[in-house]
């Protein structure tokens, strides 16, 4: 019982854009001094999305594994920059970008490929129409988990330095001494997805499901898809956070079981 999607015309968009124009007029009249930022953001939003559409159209037409992989790599790269921006204390050197990005690349690609090959099964399995939106949703959430996990780990290690070194001085190995920090980092990383799963459907209608409904999909199928995506996100977040936190511990300690906060950027 799929209904047909109702197309959105340019006239529809022009009409809806009056709301933003009214917003800008209000900002000018009330001298909020955000009219400029509003205009820039609106234009950026339109340009970026149009560009995305052009890229997707080209990708869907070619269905090339190479170009799909290039697009996926670019997405992971941008997400890595976002993780870096959310770190209060960064690892020194190349690790600052490499650890978060590497953890995400590992987790998101594993989970996306698992979903493509195992459940969604498009033909071919790497078809960008399925691969890229799935990757995008998994990345967006894994990114949050990885960023939170790393940030919690580094601030805990810096704060608890005396306690950790006291344990090391008493003969604990680095894993014992880091355990409380690792636990808290992982808990913090996984909290958002747990909260999201608990609230989904009651407080929030997930964007993907809403989009499917608007596109005319049967609610039952839309909900099945959403549950699938939530499982994928939960798995991706856990894998990404685990890789990032244990990678961080590996980097901030050494083989002589020392705490190496000197490897954080000053």
């Amino acid at each position: 019982m799929n209904a047909a999607a109702i197309p959105v015309s340019n006239l529809d968009l022009a009409l809806a854009s009056m709301l933003v124009v009214a917003n800008g007029a209000l900002a000018i009249v009330l001298r909020l001094r955000i009219a400029g930022a509003l205009a820039v953001a609106t234009v950026r939003m339109m340009l970026q999305l149009t560009l995305t559409a052009l890229v997707l159209i080209a990708l869907f037409r070619t269905v090339s594994p190479l170009w799909t992989a290039v697009a996926a790599t670019a997405m992971v790269g941008f997400a890595g920059r976002e993780i870096l921006a959310r770190q209060e204390r960064r690892l020194a050197g190349w690790w600052a970008y490499g650890l978060g990005t590497g953890a995400m690349l590992l987790a998101a690609s594993l989970v996306t490929i698992f979903a493509l090959v195992g459940q969604v099964q498009p033909d071919p399995w790497y078809h960008p129409r399925w691969a890229l939106p799935l990757l995008g949703m998994i990345l967006g959430n894994t990114m949050t988990g990885v960023a939170l996990g790393l940030d919690t780990l580094t601030s805990r290690l810096a704060r608890d330095r005396a306690g950790i070194e006291a344990q090391l001085a008493l003969g604990a190995d680095r894993h014992e001494a880091m355990r409380p920090a690792a636990r808290q980092a992982l808990r913090t990383a996984l909290m958002p997805i747990i909260n999201a799963m608990a609230a989904t459907g009651l407080v929030s209608l997930p964007g993907m499901m809403t989009g499917q409904l608007l596109a005319g999909a049967d609610p039952e199928q839309a909900v099945r898809y959403q549950i699938l995506v939530m499982f994928l996100i939960a798995g991706g977040t856990a894998a990404g956070a685990l890789a990032a936190v244990f990678g961080g511990i590996y980097r901030l300690t050494d083989s002589r079981h020392r705490l190496r906060l000197d490897r954080l950027a000053g």
Partner: peptide
């Protein structure tokens, strides 16, 4: 090693 201000965990 016993630090001047021992750490606690």
């Amino acid at each position: 090693y016993v630090a001047t201000e021992p750490g606690w965990w």
